[in-house]
Design a protein around this nucleic acid. Structure first.
Lengths: 345, 345
DNA sequence: ACGCGTGTTTGAAATGTTTCAGACGCCGTG
DNA sequence: CACGGCGTCTGAAACATTTCAAACACGCGT
C-alpha cells in the first residue's frame, strides 16, 4: 500500500512488525509454529507494505523451482493445446506453474527452450519432441530433471512416455470404413519420418489384411506435413483419380489433414460421405464443428496431458522410479463424414 | 560430462580452471575483458563439468527476470494462440522467455496467475483480461511491472493497450453484407458485458443507419458466450424463424460462433450463402478451412501480439513512457460464405 | 629507477529467502 | 530451588550469481 521506492523484502516486513527475519519466514511457511498474536502482526505488516515474496530467492535457497514446462510441437494444432490444458490442470492441483513453449517443429528452437528450462531449474519437462532420440533430451534427463515424452514413445524406454496406441487407432479407423462397405480406401499422411504416421498406416494395413481385402486397394497418399493445406493438396490429387478407380474413403493421419481434405472435396463437388467418406485422427473440437461433422479417432487429449504431468511429478518426487510407457486406447467417434445417419452427433 | 552428485556452480568451474569466481562470471557476461587464454580455459572447464547457469541466482542479483508473460483469456480459441505466437516472436528477438498462462475467463484464476507472475518478478505482463478494470491489474502496474492490455482497450488510459477498431470491424462486416444485397441481417454475439461485442454491434448499427435501412431489419441475436456451441444454438433459433421473416445474412461477433452457426445451418438444410450468408470476426485459420470457407473480418493476430510485446518492452526499458492505445484497422476477407464466386479464395 | 597507464584478475559485498541450532522465558514437577 | 520441557523467537549461515573497487603485472617512456 506504500508508494515509496523499492519493493519491500522480508527484512522490511520484519522491521515493521518488530520481529526477526526468521519469524516472517515462519509466518509464510510454517504458520503453526508462530503465536497467533505475532502472526497477526506480521500479516498486517505484509499487507501494509504490499510485500510480495521474491520467488528467485526462494528458489535459490530451495534449489528447485515450482514450475513445470511443456514444450509443444505445433502451436497451430489445437490438439496440443488440449494436452496443455490437461497438464495445466494437474499442475494446478500440485500448486505448480506451467511454462509453455513452442518448438514449431524446429529442433534448434527446441534446444534453445530446453536450455533455458534447465537454467530455470524447472521441476520437470513434458515434451512432444521433434525427435525423441535427440541428445539434448538425454542430457537434460541426466541432469536429474524428469522428462516425459507426450504423444510419442521414447525408444528404448529412456524416459517415461504417454501416448495413444497408434497402431490400434489405425486399425479401428479402417475397420470402421470397411464396415461401411468401403473396399477402396486411401490412407493420407506424412511425412513418414513421424513414428505416428508410420504406426497409423501400419494399423490400417494390418486390419486390411486381416479382413482379407486385396493390398492394392488400400492406397497410401503421402503428405509433407500434418496440416490443413496439405490435406487440401491431397484432396486435389485424390480428385484427379478417375472416379471408377478412386478410393471411396480416406483415413487421414490427423484431423487437420482431414479438414483440408473435406473442404477441398466438397469444393470439388464431391458429396461427403456418399462419394468420399473421411475419417480423421485426434478428434479436435473443430472436427465436430465442421460443416460435415468429421468422424475421427478420439484421443483422450486432456487425459494424456494430465497423466504425463502425474508421471513427471512422480519422478520428481524421487524414490524408486521406474520409467513407464503409458498407452491409452483410442476410440472411434462416428459422425456424418462417414455415416449418413450417425448414432452420435 | 561428469556424472557425480550435484550440479556444478561457478565456484566449481573456477576451481577447475584455476581462476576466481569473478573471472568465470566475466567469461559469461563480459567476454571481451578476459584474455583469450583464460577464457578458453574457463570455457573448457564449463563444458567439461556440464555447467549450467542458475537463473534464479542471476535474477536475484540482477533484480529482474528475463521473461515476459501472457495471460490468455480463452485457451480454446485459436485467435489467442496466434496472438501468443506474435508475442513469442518479439520476445525471442529481445532474448526473453515467454510464460503463457490461461485464465479461461475466470477472474480468480487470473488473479492467481498474476500473483505468481509478480513473485517471479517478470519483466512485463501482456494480458487479455476478464475485466480490464479489475483492481489486481492496477496493483501489478503500480508495483512497476509494465502491463499491456491485448485485444481490449483499457478504460481511462491506465495502461497501454493494443486492439483492433471493433466499431469499424462491425461496420465493414455489415457493409459487405448490404453490398451483397441483404436487407435483413442478424447480428449474433454476446454476452453484452464484453466491450467488443458491444462495439461490433454498435458499428453494425451505425452503418445500417447510414445506409438508410430500417432499424427493425437489423436484429440482434444474443448468445451466452463466443463459442461454437453457442453458435449452433443461435442457428437453431434462427432456423425457427419463418423463412419470409428470417434474416438472409448473419454477422457473428467471432469466428467460433460463425462456425457453429454455419454447421447448424447446413445441417438444417439451409444453403450457405444462398439461404443464409455468414460473416465472422477474427479470421482464424479454421475460418478458411471450413467446408464453406468463411468470410471474416480479419484481425492482424500475430501483429497484435508483436506490437503489444514491443510496447511492454518499451515501457520496461524505462525512460519517459506515455501510455498509448494502439488501434489496428481490420479488413474484410470475403469467402464463399457470403459470395457465390469470391475473388479471394 | 620511477611513475604511469593498460589490460587482466581477484576478493568481498550484496541480492532475498529458508533453515537450523540455539537462546529465551515460562511453567510445572521433583 | 533446580531442572527439564515446551512453545516461541532469533541470528547467522547458506544458496549461486553479479558487480565493483582494488590489486596486480607488465611494458614504456622519462
Amino acid at each position: 500500500m506504500v508508494g515509496n521506492g523499492r519493493t519491500p523484502s522480508v527484512k522490511d516486513v520484519a522491521a515493521a512488525a518488530g520481529v526477526s527475519l526468521g519469524t516472517v519466514s515462519n509466518v509464510m511457511n510454517r504458520p503453526e509454529v508462530v503465536s497467533p498474536a505475532t502472526r497477526e502482526r506480521v500479516e498486517r505488516a505484509m499487507t501494509e507494505l504490499g510485500f510480495v515474496r521474491n520467488e528467485s530467492a526462494r528458489q535459490l535457497r530451495a534449489g528447485t523451482s515450482r514450475t513445470l514446462a511443456y514444450v509443444m510441437l505445433d502451436g497451430s494444432n489445437p490438439f496440443f493445446h488440449d494436452v496443455a490444458q490437461g497438464i495445466e490442470l494437474a499442475a494446478e492441483e500440485a500448486d505448480l506453474s506451467l511454462f509453455i513453449c513452442t518448438s514449431n517443429g524446429r529442433a534448434d528452437r527446441e534446444a534453445v527452450h530446453l536450455d533455458r528450462l534447465m537454467q530455470q531449474r524447472v521441476q520437470g519437462v513434458l515434451i512432444t519432441p521433434v525427435n525423441p532420440d535427440a541428445p539434448h533430451l538425454a542430457e537434460i534427463s541426466r541432469r536429474g530433471i524428469p522428462v516425459v515424452i507426450v504423444d510419442r514413445v521414447a525408444a528404448g524406454g529412456a524416459f517415461c512416455s504417454v501416448a495413444v496406441d497408434d497402431v490400434l487407432g489405425g486399425r479401428i479407423a479402417v475397420e470402421h470404413l470397411a464396415e461401411q462397405g468401403h473396399t477402396r480406401v486411401a490412407v493420407v499422411g506424412g511425412p513418414e519420418s513421424l513414428g505416428q504416421v508410420r504406426e497409423r498406416l501400419e494399423g490400417a494395413r494390418q486390419i486390411w489384411a486381416e479382413l482379407g481385402l486385396p493390398a492394392e486397394d488400400l492406397s497410401y497418399l503421402p503428405t509433407a506435413a500434418l496440416s490443413v493445406a496439405e490435406g487440401r493438396s491431397a484432396g486435389e490429387r485424390l480428385a484427379g483419380i478417375p472416379a471408377r478407380r478412386r478410393p471411396t474413403a480416406a483415413f487421414c493421419a490427423n484431423d487437420l489433414l482431414a479438414l483440408g481434405l473435406l473442404q477441398q472435396s466438397i469444393g470439388a463437388g464431391l458429396r461427403v460421405p456418399e462419394d468420399l467418406a473421411i475419417v480423421g485422427f485426434d478428434d479436435i473440437e473443430f472436427a465436430a464443428a465442421a460443416a460435415v461433422p468429421l468422424s475421427s479417432v478420439r484421443q483422450p487429449r486432456q487425459e494424456l496431458g494430465r497423466a504425463a504431468a502425474q508421471l513427471v511429478l512422480e519422478e520428481a518426487a524421487g524414490g524408486r522410479h521406474q520409467h513407464q510407457q503409458l498407452s491409452f486406447v483410442p476410440e472411434l467417434v462416428a459422425r456424418a463424414s462417414t455415416v449418413l445417419r450417425p448414432k452420435v452427433f
